[in-house]
Design a protein around this nucleic acid. Structure first.
Lengths: 192, 192
DNA sequence: GATATTTCTTAACTCAGGTCAAGAAAGCGG
DNA sequence: CCGCTTTCTTGACCTGAGTTAAGAAATATC
């Protein structure tokens, strides 16, 4: 039940048995069926979740069209960092792309954790850093990589995405239409 | 000398005279002539700077081409947040677009400040939040706004950028070529 | 197991942005 | 104040992504 969480945490900071157990008491388990929401735009997302099993994404809605911001698999933490920290409503939708199992932590429980076990500040800091690094990498790629380059990088760097997620969602993530991704795939297949 | 800094800080947290004076002792003044660098890709940027006067940008270099990430004017803080926090080399170039005057704070001085005057943690937190919010807004806009929409939003939301920064830099920020921005401007001028 | 839905591809056409080339205008540096 | 650089625009042509429409194949649903 908590194996994945344990090894994930231990990559960040060494924990005694008691510390880990305490951490776990702050979590609640939650199942999401495919297509169920973790958070909707307009809501305040004062919780973050460890994905124990499954896959989620967040997306923006503009003129009725979805634009995928990011995909998350088991082993990573998900949540609207902005909303979580500031208490303001989210502008993103978070939903499950597969049946998923989450371990959810509330904002005030995390704050309590920081106070009672300051070594967990490191956990919070690394989480925040990862958000910044991920977001800036994504911006850079959208700014100067072509859609084809973005697709090739995705295959290279995150093969799981290409394996488990429908192509129309990947197209949206790359900033193009499904038809264009089809053409890119054909181009690549023909040229080798 | 410190008026702009003072009013900028006071928007975040109320300070006594002594606290502000202490903050100021941690800063060193630095002038940058137009085109001078604040930080180069490959270097570790263990300092952040308050822009007292002038304008800076950061950009990425790919295949010999510059891609502008963001512009900063007097009153804002600049630095490579990733490099600053993690101590790893930057992948961005920071340079001055006008003759500029900075107030520079070193990483270890900021850490000292957090320890000695914990109320400044708020300062650090808000700085970090702004980085995340800015980066995510930018990603979203690159993902689903057209270049023309991005240009119109820029005029609306950040008129200073359009007034003070050459169009070829703005084009690069929008993710297009100068010629394309010229055409967009013509299109807009013709259609009204 | 039949039907509906989701997923993915292909084709024809349009259009915005890239590329290459050129030149005008403004600003700067000596 | 003269020449050089920077800034900005325009035109012709090319290319890749959007749009619309259709259909095939795989999955889900009852």
């Amino acid at each position: 039940m908590f194996d994945r969480l344990k090894s994930s945490l231990e990559r960040l900071l060494p924990l005694t048995r008691d510390e880990f157990v305490y951490f776990v008491t702050l979590l609640t388990s939650r199942k999401l069926a495919k297509h169920e929401f973790f958070l909707r735009a307009g809501e305040v997302g004062r919780e973050i979740a460890f994905i124990n099993q499954g896959c989620l994404r967040y997306y923006y809605l503009k003129d009725g069209n979805e634009f995928n911001g990011q995909f998350f698999f088991e082993g990573s933490w998900i949540g609207d960092y902005q909303s979580f920290l500031t208490g303001r409503p989210s502008i993103q939708y978070f939903d499950a792309l597969e049946d998923s199992a989450l371990l959810v932590m509330q904002y005030h429980d995390l704050q309590k954790l920081y106070t009672e076990l300051p070594k967990f500040e490191r956990f919070g800091r690394v989480l925040a850093e990862n958000v910044v690094i991920g977001s800036q990498r994504r911006t850079a790629s959208l700014l100067f990589d072509t859609p084809e380059e973005r697709y090739l990088k995705l295959i290279q760097e995150r093969p799981k995405v290409v394996e488990r997620i429908p192509l129309h969602h990947i197209a949206s993530y790359l900033g193009i239409k499904p038809e264009s991704l089809s053409r890119i795939r054909k181009r690549l297949a023909d040229s080798r």
